[in-house]
Amino acid sequence: MNEAKKVTLPRDVAEAIEESRESFTGGEIVSAAVGWNDYDERSLKLIRKWVQEDPYDARQELIMSALVNGFTIEQSPEEKLREYYEKINRTKYGTYGTARAECVIEGIEKTLSILGIQIEGINTK
């Protein structure tokens, strides 16, 4: 028997599902997501909008799977960069070598500075 696998959802959709579960059943959430019921709940509207974007059929499956098997929240680009930055910083005396790691770290910090982007854990405390 196949073990159920959690799906990965965008943060706003995952939060909308969690919020919707306080007032609606899984069936009602799916029904709203595919457009069978037109609930006026903000969280359900957000889920419906996401599901009805392309690829529609695949997103219907994702929502149903998320409700049955659970879900994880997709990392934002900032979170992915922070994780990479921390990995380089932790292993700079190992796999990457000190000089290379320091160059990568400097490149990340300089790029964020040029773009005027602040990311906690990288260039802000």
Rank of each mutant, 00 (worst) to 15 (best):
Met64Phe: 07
Thr25Tyr: 15
Thr111Asp: 13
Ile114His: 08
Glu61Tyr: 07
Trp50Asn: 01
Ile114Asn: 13
Glu74Phe: 00
Tyr85Val: 06
Glu83Thr: 12
Ala16Gln: 04
Asp40Met: 09
Ser65Leu: 07
Gly94Lys: 09
Gly97Met: 09
Ala101Pro: 04
Asn69Cys: 09
Tyr93Cys: 00
Asp54Leu: 05
Ser43Phe: 05
Met1Asn: 08
Leu112Ile: 07
Ala101Thr: 01
Asp57Ile: 06
Tyr84Thr: 01
Glu120Ser: 13
Cys103Tyr: 12
Arg100Trp: 02
Gln75Lys: 15
Thr72Ser: 12
Leu46Glu: 11
Tyr96Met: 12
Arg42Pro: 12
Asn123His: 06
Arg100Tyr: 10
Asp57Val: 10
Ala66Phe: 03
Arg11Gln: 14
Glu22Ile: 15
Glu61Lys: 14
Thr8Met: 08
Pro10Ile: 02
Glu18Met: 11
Gly121Trp: 03
Glu19Lys: 12
Ile114Thr: 13
Tyr84Val: 00
Asp38Ala: 11
Asn69Pro: 04
Gly26Leu: 01
Ile105Ala: 08
Glu74Ala: 12
Lys80Val: 12
Asp12Met: 02
Gly107Arg: 10
Ile119Arg: 06
Ile47Ser: 02
Gly27Lys: 14
Gln75Ser: 13
Val104Ala: 09
Pro55His: 09
Lys125Trp: 07
Asp57Arg: 13
Tyr85Lys: 03
Ile88Cys: 07
Phe24Arg: 03
Ile105Gly: 02
Val7Gly: 02
Tyr84Ala: 14
Asp40Tyr: 02
Ala14Lys: 02
Leu112Lys: 07
Arg11His: 03
Gly26Val: 02
Glu3Pro: 01
Thr124Trp: 01
Val34Phe: 04
Arg100Asp: 05
Pro77Val: 01
Asn123Glu: 06
Arg42Cys: 00
Phe71Ala: 08
Glu53Thr: 06
Leu9Gln: 00
Glu53Leu: 09
Ile17Lys: 03
Val51Ile: 12
Glu3His: 10
Thr8Cys: 07
Glu120Arg: 12
Thr98Ala: 06
Arg21Tyr: 05
Gly70Thr: 08
Thr72Ala: 06
Gly107Trp: 09
Asn89Ile: 00
Tyr96Glu: 13
Ser65Ala: 13
Arg100Gly: 00
Met1Ser: 11
Lys45Thr: 10
Val68Lys: 14
Gly27Asn: 14
Ile122Ser: 04
Glu109Gln: 13
Arg82Glu: 13
Ile108Cys: 08
Met1Asp: 08
Leu46Val: 09
Ile29His: 04
Leu46Gln: 09
Tyr96Arg: 10
Glu18Ile: 04
Phe71Ser: 11
Ala33Arg: 03
Lys110Ile: 11
Asn89Met: 07
Glu120Gln: 14
Asp54Ser: 13
Gly94Cys: 07
Ala14Gly: 09
Lys5Phe: 02
Thr98His: 08
Thr95Asp: 10
Glu22Pro: 08
Ser113Glu: 15
Gly121Glu: 12
Asp38Thr: 09
Thr124Tyr: 04
Thr95Glu: 15
Phe24Ala: 07
Lys5Leu: 11
Trp36Arg: 11
Glu19Gln: 13
Ala4Gln: 12
Ser20Asp: 09
Glu19Ile: 09
Val13Asn: 00
Gly35Leu: 11
Ile122Ala: 04
Val34Ala: 03
Leu81Val: 08
Ser76Cys: 05
